[in-house]
Design a protein around this nucleic acid. Structure first.
Lengths: 123, 123
DNA sequence: TAAACATATGAACAATTATTCATATATTGA
DNA sequence: TCAATATATGAATAATTGTTCATATGTTTA
């Protein structure tokens, strides 16, 4: 309506550095990009999925193999593979009853390696 | 006690590729490393924190600035900055009443850039 | 076609977590 | 010392999510 606020008053502080804020705002990536990026890292933010990906760095494996490797039940692995599939991180091929999963991305390892550098520096 | 199972029977499948599983197991990083890596990515797996980090790529900012930029209240930002601080991703300096936050890691940008490459390839 | 097996999936549950609200702490200046 | 302001934080709440269980789907072989 007529009296609609133009600016959401969400910070109760007297903003000190308007210029900085405006400049930074212009330099921010698109909202959608930031959302997608967070979604991607969310996928990496689970030990089970990290383990699956590290396993697949080494070899193509079927669901049962992964379950045995991680000592988890088949259902849990299958659910997580679905998440990885949706994020386009793994692909699969069927051979009879068996479904083989493998990596579908060359950047994952690099991302992980950079992550490890951070961890080692800060520990 | 005496009858303790040596192997947890968590996968109900007949394991097909024992050799692959054993080899992969040997090549897996330490449990703790994988856990830490997942914890790091968990920090990146939130839009608000991603935004804060992207903001800090550009400039040092105080809590109020960030709150104004993201149109979120000061408390929410402060909580998230705490998470980023604990992960050693940001550092801060106090100047009177104002606390300025800035990046404490050079790898973040590279990790994010690789993430963006993945997103763009797959969209 | 039926049995056996590998995988997928929906529902339920427990655990984690982001945000809000209220309030505490810390610093400055009057 | 008191008021004002910036930031931090504990508790509560709502939403998300990982795992399990039960069961469905799909494939092979007898």
């Amino acid at each position: 309506m007529a009296g609609k606020k133009l600016k959401v008053e969400s910070c109760n502080c007297t903003i000190i550095h308007n210029e900085v804020v405006d400049d930074v705002k212009k330099g921010m990536p698109q909202e959608e990009t930031l959302y997608d990026l967070a979604e991607l890292f969310k996928v990496f933010g689970d030990t089970t999925r990290i383990k699956i990906l590290y396993a697949l760095f080494q070899a193509e494996m079927c669901v049962c193999d992964i379950a045995a490797l991680l000592k988890m039940n088949q259902s849990a692995i299958s659910h997580q593979l679905k998440v990885l599939k949706q994020a386009r991180l793994v692909k699969y091929r069927r051979e009879g009853k068996v479904v083989y999963y493998s990596l579908d991305d060359n950047h994952i390892k690099q991302i992980f390696d950079q992550g490890l550098v951070h961890i080692k520096e800060k520990s």
